[in-house]
Design a binder for these strands. Sequence first.
DNA 1: CTAATAAAGGATAAAAAGATCCTTTTATAT
DNA 2: ATATAAAAGGATCTTTTTATCCTTTATTAG
Lengths: 145, 145
Amino acid sequence: MFSKSCEYGLRAVIFIAEQSTLQTKVGLKTIASAINSPEAFTAKILQILTRNNIVTSIKGPYGGFMIEEYRLKEITLSEIVQILDGDKIYTGCGLGLKQCDDKSPCPLHFKFIEIRNNLKKMLEENTLHDILFTDTEKNVFWLKT
Amino acid sequence: MFSKSCEYGLRAVIFIAEQSTLQTKVGLKTIASAINSPEAFTAKILQILTRNNIVTSIKGPYGGFMIEEYRLKEITLSEIVQILDGDKIYTGCGLGLKQCDDKSPCPLHFKFIEIRNNLKKMLEENTLHDILFTDTEKNVFWLKT
DNA sequence: CTAATAAAGGATAAAAAGATCCTTTTATAT
DNA sequence: ATATAAAAGGATCTTTTTATCCTTTATTAG
């Protein structure tokens, strides 16, 4: 569904968000080991997320990554996915046709947009805050990757 | 959503199915140009689909690919997707975690399985026959890739 | 000011997906 | 039987994605 970059990105952001609610800033090593992702690759993804103002980074000793409290209710999963995977997941045809829309639909078009709209809706409706506070086993799942 | 192989495969199968209802067997060149896919790559995909008894191939002059009439109501989109992309689309965690299920769910788990189940249901419920006969502009869309 | 720490960023490498080429096998018409 | 047409299959190449390494920049404590 999502690229590896996007999966790592989402995991990283959710983890950072979680720690941020505890007023804790986290470094790359901590993040990568918590979410079980390759460190250097995760660094690249965090750079992108930093440039796109999803996370805030602080350089130097005692530095790390964090997300401002007020941003938790603003940032949606959709934004993160769009930054890391673009919008092909929202706009792409199921059969990969360039020209496929309501006017000239592929044979799967109408069945497909239904699914895609559900996904889109879900990603747009869920902010980091929502994800953190409907988590059934908060802070626990990370240990089981 | 799907890999390129799977997109080409679905397009090829739908095209072959369409032609098969007209009692017409089609060759690789015809298929690749109709569905706008790379010929040699499409050949590989058709090999896989032949081995998996989705399409029937006939070698030699006047050969080509076809789908038996009675198979049209049996073959679902789901089968084709599973053959070409495996079942990660059905079973994989949205965040890419190995261990993620109802018992130890990732933070997106319950929101995700809803989407995935919709997709699964759609692919399982639609046979080639269904796709062919709910196509709004039958035989036309291929020309517009 | 210096040493140390941590993120940023450039360059490169490895793996996977996508695509092509060429030879072999099978079947058909003449 | 032979020439030909078409799919099967092996080998190889290209591109994209995933991943690593190393140098530079920024920040902090002492």
